[in-house]
């Protein structure tokens, strides 16, 4: 009885300070506990809800752990072939120019198999928003090396650590595309603390506002953890991410209003 009382009390509209957005489908996420994908999804949906543009938004999900994003995001979605989301989004935006179009992609999807589609969508200045989840690994297929895997970092296909001499260097695709004139806004964020979550949400909002103004491509990288792929607990993985990923993939704006920001030297 006490419980019931508490429930009705809390549900009064004037008492609600936070509520899960209806744009997240009411079903359990397929992500590992502690993974950043779910938070990134929620930020995106909260922005769509606040801007009231869900009915005018078309999303493209990748192949990767977030392949089932369309099951969780309560908006119209298309699941792309591995790496091809920017090609889909290009056509969708050109055919529905008054709609908001975004892709949501992992690092293998965006920076390995889909590099060409990424660079050319950026270079054409497609009026779309790309959300890029960089966890430095292939989460879905079981923790293989990604284009973004750090030097010396272990993965199932670099079991002794990434040897840059034979396996190549981690690809800073975000910096790379930021130099293209078709790209208007580039930022690198994270979602592992409330403060970072707030900043990410702001960035997503900014990108979608800019899309409304047809400013060109907006690119948001979210450096995220993959506790399963990294073989760590969620807490360990967040610490490892701060200590190892962030020095290499520095957080903050890279290009704003079509102009590159001078970044402090990276290690």
């Amino acid at each position: 009885m006490e419980e019931q009382f508490a429930k009705t009390e809390i549900r009064k509209p004037e008492n609600i300070v936070y509520k899960k957005t209806d744009l997240m489908v009411d079903r359990p996420l397929s992500y590992c506990p502690g993974c950043g994908h779910g938070t990134a999804h929620r930020m995106l949906m909260e922005v769509l809800e606040e801007m009231d543009i869900a009915d005018k938004t078309i999303g493209v999900s990748p192949v990767g752990c977030s392949v089932l994003a369309y099951d969780f995001l309560n908006i119209d979605m298309l699941g792309a072939a591995h790496g091809r989301a920017p090609a889909l989004a290009t056509a969708i935006k050109r055919l529905w120019p008054n709609h908001f179009v975004f892709t949501y992609q992992g690092d293998g999807d965006l920076a390995a198999i889909g590099t060409a589609e990424t660079i050319h969508a950026c270079n054409r200045g497609e009026n779309i928003t790309i959300i890029f989840i960089n966890n430095g690994i292939y989460g879905m297929t079981g923790g293989q090396m990604a284009p973004t895997t750090l030097p010396g970092m272990r993965s199932s296909t670099s079991p002794y650590g990434r040897d840059v001499a034979t396996m190549g260097h981690p690809l800073k695709i975000t910096e790379l595309i930021s130099h293209l004139p078709g790209v208007y806004y580039v930022t690198r964020q994270a979602v592992h603390t409330p403060n970072h979550v707030r900043k990410t949400k702001k960035a997503i909002r900014k990108a979608l506002e800019l899309q409304k103004e047809n400013k060109g491509l907006c690119f948001i990288e979210i450096v995220s953890n993959c506790n399963s792929g990294w073989k760590m607990t969620p807490v360990q993985s967040n610490k490892w991410m701060e200590e190892n990923m962030f020095p290499f993939y520095q957080l903050g704006d890279i290009k704003v209003d079509g102009k590159l920001i001078e970044l402090p030297k990276t290690s």
Binding site: V60, L88, T90, I92, A116
Partner: peptide, 11 residues
């Protein structure tokens, strides 16, 4: 052509 066919898929 990889991009074109996937643009088709999107459209």
């Amino acid at each position: 052509e990889t991009a074109s066919i996937n643009m088709l898929y999107g459209g």
